[in-house]
Simulated assay, not measured.
Amino acid sequence: MLQLYKSRDFALFFKDTFAFIKMHGKHFFKNYLLVNGLFLLVLIVMSFILYMEVAELQALGLLDERNQREFIRYLGDNSNIYVPYGILYILISAFVGILNYAYIPLYFKLYEKHKGANFTNKEISKELFANFGRLIKFLLVTILISIPLMIAAAIVMGIMAITFIGIPFIVFVVGLISLFYHSALMEYMKYDDKSVFDCYGYSLQLCFQQFFPSIGAVGIFILMIIIFQYVYSFLQGIVLYFLGVPFIENPMFLSDLDKTSLVFIIAFALQTGMYLFNFLTSATLQIHQAVVYYSLKEDRENIHTQDTIDDIGRN
């Protein structure tokens, strides 16, 4: 078992993240797919249907700026299809997003409770659905908080983007925002008696606990994830190039392929793999943020130290 409550420096944030993946990666990702897999598959299929519809609109020229009236008329004539599908797609996307972001806090909550990865996907699912109402509440408050936060972040990143020197530091602003949200959700899922605003207030304090090591670690990890996703996209492009698929000239290349051909099957599998890869790398980032969260919490509250003293007293 990886010790969660532990004071860590910049290097140890990375070391313990990879140590956790090495020890429990199989259990974590297996249960991740068991809990989220069906919903991810539904979302991928719906995204593909939407993708094909957009490709058809593009082929008809309705997406051109000069054909806006025809496009609006087309949507109006088919509103009985597009409106229900759009609403359903948004709801399922939101549901999948909630499950994905709630999985990690609840996984670590059970990991802490069982003192290791000694639990099943049924226990995770039970926790997810038992806390679903609280998650909706968290989401609504988060939307409220995000409005001024995103405006402020956009202004700061805009100022940074003006200068060449400031551009690399944008990733650290993203890291700060990401850790702020994730730590608040970790705290909210951990304690049933804490309000959303209390958790965000506590998360803000944690973010400034070891500001440069923690935010730097999260920012660099985000950069690593972006690079990994880019590499996958690059390798996908190479395979498609050798298959003779003009993916660069036509972003909607799947719509031009014969749906029964081997080329289409390979291209579709690669595209589906990209969806899954992005979800899994996002989950890996959240593991890293969880390690940072527990470390900052230990520095602030000395939980492991207190537990050790209590154990000595009991013995």
Rank of each mutant, 00 (worst) to 15 (best):
N118K: 12
E56K: 15
A94G: 14
Q236K: 05
F129P: 09
H182R: 10
Y230C: 01
K115F: 05
S195H: 06
I215F: 04
E56F: 11
I159Q: 08
N118A: 13
D16I: 09
F211T: 14
V231I: 15
K259H: 08
R66A: 11
Q271S: 13
F228D: 04
M252N: 15
L43H: 07
A59G: 07
F277W: 02
Q58F: 05
I238L: 15
F264A: 10
Q3M: 12
S178G: 06
I44P: 09
Y202W: 09
F247W: 00
V218N: 14
Y51F: 01
D310L: 13
L223T: 06
I287P: 03
A102M: 08
V42L: 07
N36G: 02
K22H: 09
A283R: 12
M274I: 06
N80T: 12
V245L: 03
A19W: 02
K115A: 10
A161C: 13
R8N: 09
N67P: 08
S79T: 12
L91F: 07
Q3W: 05
L75M: 13
D299W: 06
Q286S: 05
I21H: 00
F39G: 05
T17N: 11
A59W: 05
Y241S: 15
Q58M: 02
N67A: 14
N278Y: 06
G313L: 13
F95Q: 00
E56P: 02
T281C: 03
I287Y: 03
I162E: 05
S47E: 08
L43F: 13
N121D: 09
S233N: 07
I49V: 15
F39P: 02
N78I: 10
Q289M: 15
F95C: 01
M157D: 09
L88D: 03
I287T: 04
F18K: 04
V35C: 09
E70R: 15
K297Y: 07
V173P: 06
M150K: 12
D192K: 07
H27R: 10
A55Q: 00
V245F: 00
A217H: 00
V83N: 06
L40P: 04
K115D: 00
I165W: 00
I21Y: 00
N131I: 01
Q306T: 14
S255K: 03
Q68N: 09
A269D: 11
L270K: 02
Y293Q: 07
F234C: 03
Y191N: 14
S261C: 01
L62Y: 06
D9N: 15
D256L: 08
S79P: 02
L276V: 03
Y111W: 13
